[in-house]
Amino acid sequence: MTTRNRQATALTLACLCAAALLPACTNQSPKAGQPNTAPPDSGPTSSATSTPTAGNSTPVTGTPSTAPERPKAAEGLTLPAAEAFVRHYVELMNYASATGDIPPLLSASDSGCRQCRVYADYVKKVNASNGGLSGDFSERVDDIPDLFRGENGRLGGYAKVTIGAYTSKDSPTAKPVTSTVRKYKREFTLAPQQGAWVMYEMDLVPQ
Rank of each mutant, 00 (worst) to 15 (best):
K124L: 05
V181Y: 00
T189Y: 00
S65K: 13
T53D: 15
A82G: 06
G157Y: 06
N152L: 09
E83V: 03
A159C: 05
T2V: 09
D203T: 06
T37L: 09
E75F: 03
R117N: 14
S42E: 07
A96W: 01
G62A: 11
S138W: 05
Q207S: 11
A73F: 01
I163V: 12
E91C: 03
A14C: 08
R6C: 04
L79Y: 05
I102F: 02
T189K: 01
Q207L: 13
A196F: 00
R149M: 07
R140S: 13
D170F: 04
G33C: 02
S129A: 15
P35T: 05
P35F: 07
N56G: 11
A196Y: 00
K183I: 08
V205L: 05
G76S: 02
A18E: 15
T2F: 13
E83L: 06
T178C: 04
Y184I: 12
E139T: 08
R70G: 09
W197L: 10
E201M: 11
G43D: 10
Q207V: 14
K169T: 11
T66P: 01
P145I: 04
S29L: 13
S129K: 15
K125V: 07
A67C: 09
Y166E: 03
L77Y: 07
G135M: 10
D143A: 14
T49Y: 09
K169I: 03
S65L: 15
T189H: 02
A98F: 06
P64L: 10
S107M: 07
V118A: 11
S57E: 11
D121A: 08
Y166D: 04
P172Q: 12
K160A: 14
P176G: 12
A14K: 01
Q194T: 09
R149K: 08
T63I: 15
S65P: 00
S179A: 15
G164S: 02
L92S: 11
A54D: 10
G55M: 08
P40K: 06
P206C: 10
T189W: 01
S179W: 03
Q115F: 05
R70T: 06
R87E: 04
L105Q: 01
T9I: 13
Q7E: 12
T173P: 01
D143L: 03
V161C: 12
L106M: 15
T9A: 14
V126S: 04
R114E: 15
L190G: 01
S65I: 08
E187T: 03
A24K: 00
M202R: 02
C15H: 12
G135H: 09
T37Y: 03
D121G: 00
G55A: 02
K124C: 03
P192V: 07
G195D: 05
Q193G: 05
P44Y: 01
T61C: 11
E83F: 01
A191H: 06
S97E: 14
L92Q: 13
G153E: 08
T9E: 15
A10W: 14
G62C: 10
N27T: 12
E69M: 08
F188R: 02
N94E: 09
G100W: 06
K124R: 14
N94L: 06
K185P: 00
T49P: 05
G76F: 04
